[in-house]
Amino acid sequence: MRLTLIVVIAVLVQALGNVLLGKGIKQVTSNLNIAVTLDYIFLEKCLAVITLTLSNPSFIFGLVLLIAFFILNLVLLSKADLSYVMPVTSFSYVLIAVLAFFILEERLSAAQWIGITLISFGVLIVGRNELLRMQAKTLNSERREE
């Protein structure tokens, strides 16, 4: 049960982190129009981009959340198999797409909706299977104790 809770938190943190990071980068780049030239002005513009990015609250908060996700992912890998952690945490991509659809009113194509369904189905299969595995494990250890 505790494992599932950490998975849920990790998925939420990763989705929110990605959305905020994307929003921050868009805010920074929408104000700028940089052509790559190799002169002093270009270097000055690069410095301006870095300063703008690092002072953008969305970018910083997104980055902090993604670092938090990396740590949560390590905690998950310390507890569970990679072949379980990898598929279930991919649910954050579904969350990002659905959030973009409802909040940012971005359009999703038919192929993307099918993708969302397939990922959700995959997560459901692996998640349910893990619960059954855990139940079997506890049953086995109880039997051994008797």
Partner: peptide
């Protein structure tokens, strides 16, 4: 179940 799950996620991530 894990093979099926990762295959579904792979296809889904591709389409998404």
């Amino acid at each position: 179940a894990r093979w099926m799950g990762s295959l579904f996620v792979c296809l889904g991530a591709f389409l998404l």
